[in-house]
Design a binder for these strands. Structure first.
Lengths: 205, 205, 205, 205
DNA sequence: AATGAATGAGAGTTCATTCAT
DNA sequence: AATGAATGAACTCTCATTCAT
């Protein structure tokens, strides 16, 4: 009566609970969008009471911020783990494309929620502060790639790294938005993007 | 007695009211997003009772559909009014870019709401049926432009019209999304997009 | 401009409109009950505007009173048209039973609405004043029948006319209420009611 | 500290709340009918917020179903608690009559609400499924009584149990409907019903 | 750390009724 | 006699949040 039973460790730490809550929230955002997200649904999916949910995550805004944090964490982790030593800019760009294709087909939730939260971030400053820099981070990765490629000659010298990066991220983020009937043409788009920035010789070689 | 009293023209026709309601809804969507749209706010802004609002537009879903229709109408009207006779593909593309810049700076609401509704249309089939074809319509305009340009030689022969169109629409629609500090660089992006599809010679000519 | 066009006599007299409104209301009460009655539905069925409906029948209460009046009128008319001269009480009772069977099968609306309005009449004094006397009128018809039959010997002398009348009207009005699976047994009930009030000899004759 | 404070026992269990809600709903149905039942009125009478009411009983339909259940429960409990061992059919019938008189005079709400709900049950299938079988249950009790009485000779052998039961339930249920000035004559009706089904000899014995 | 109960504010919708023409 | 437009009051229901334990 004075000690917790060893077989039923119901009380978990806040850290663990927050992870579970974040995951449940992500799943629900995918199903119904941020606008359709209900705290009660999250609590139910985690298997806890709504009051308990509020104990761990005080407000709904804090909850969405939590999700934004996890997305940022995952996104950065995924970006960091790819080695690029000794590759040309074009090769790295191709790696990115492959990566993107994998994400879209295997774990599309990352991009879905990213888009949802960026959208929300335009009106919600709390989310905006988390997500908008992340978007910049993503784009800056491509800026680096283009800079690299211009230096090593795998991209044309007249390519503007920032503009090109914006074109690539724009295309990619919009791509999956409209992928009702275009999902098959993803290769054509990748090829086209390459041609857009590579020197004429590369086309004939 | 010979004309309507100029001081209190309270009773208006349903057609006029629907226009006013649609405009008020558009303004509110810009302010608070589709998710933050409240029928009571619309009624207040139009200056009518909520019941009156429901008299003219029976449900909230019909209301959003009404907005979607007006957006579609405006978008198509804007697309139709530009003459392109005797122009090359590249020239028409430049016209489109100019047009886009004007819209973004002068009447950005068209694109803001378009994006909001396309987003919503992915989950709401009623809106989806109105908006998604519109997105295709927009993209197909660029497909035609690229086909034209390939024929007249202003674009490279190896350009894939569909892929190129997707890149352009993706870039444009994503552009304004992240335009916190990038709005100045719009020219660089336009230039870069041109270079991406024009032959090397054209760059120097 | 000063005379009504002969081909389109849209404006009808209030008397005619009230008849049409009453009929439409009756039909709708049958479909959805008094509780489900909506003025807009009535107007639509009559083919007029709601404002026009209120012009002819100022309030909903007056509308229901109107229906009650037509029911009373029809009910009384139906009761009056049957000749009973020279018949015994039992014979008249049998006539009533036949009549009831006809009404239930052919024009059940009379009884349906009667029941609905009597029910409502318990809380709405306006309706109560119209319907409750009508219910008494119906029962009193049976009181007269039993008095006649007791005199002519076709009913037992110990029959209490008022009690017997209440039993008959109660049975009949409840009968149709529960006629989901009992509609076939209506003959058995009629026979049983006869036996309940006729002398033992009649049973064996 | 050692017991719940006697002055402010605000938080009660759902089971208790549902009972209180059911009782309040019953009282309000008696006052204003099912059609006049408002969730806010119930909440107010129970002394809780409307949202709290919805917490315990999710929808209005569920609320009415709850009332229907309590009525069914009470009705069955009342029917079950009377011993009938060793009694003749006529004696049991008289017991039923006494019982009915008690209910009508002491706790008339049972029958009032029963009638209301049966009426509603004809259009609302959820309520219908609860109430209509109850009506059959009531009638079948009388079928059993008549069968018993026919066997023991307290009723005439030519009595049709089903028809007789329908006559009795019809009379009883209609009786209280019109009991403005007839409540005094209830004894006459009971006597008349007895005579209707008992053998001539029994009347004189 | 956890929970059942409670709540205020507000959502969309309905309906009988009225106004101006 | 007729109508389109307008309305106030009320309805059921939802949701993030809080309280007491």
């Amino acid at each position: 009566m004075h000690a917790c039973p060893p077989n039923l460790p119901r009380r978990e730490s806040t850290a663990e609970r927050r992870v579970a809550i974040g995951l449940a929230a992500r799943a629900l955002i995918i199903e119904k969008g941020v606008e359709g997200l209900r705290t009660r649904d999250i609590a139910e999916r985690v298997g806890i009471n709504i009051a308990t949910l509020h104990y761990h995550v005080p407000t709904k805004e804090a909850l969405i911020a939590l999700v934004a944090e996890t997305i940022r964490h995952d996104f950065r982790a995924q970006a960091m783990r790819r080695p690029r030593d000794g590759k040309t800019g074009l090769e790295v760009l191709r790696l990115e494309f492959e990566e993107f294709r994998e994400i879209v087909t295997e774990t599309p939730e990352l991009i879905i929620i990213l888009t949802e939260l960026v959208e929300r971030g335009r009106r919600d400053p709390v989310i905006g502060e988390i997500m908008l820099p992340l978007y910049d981070f993503w784009r800056n990765q491509f800026v680096d790639i283009f800079r690299l490629g211009i230096r090593d000659g795998s991209f044309r010298p007249d390519v503007d790294p920032h503009a090109a990066a914006l074109i690539v991220t724009g295309t990619l983020s919009d791509f999956w938005r409209a992928w009702t009937d275009f999902s098959a043409s993803i290769d054509a788009v990748f090829t086209q993007l390459e041609h857009a920035f590579t020197p004429p010789i590369a086309l004939q070689g």
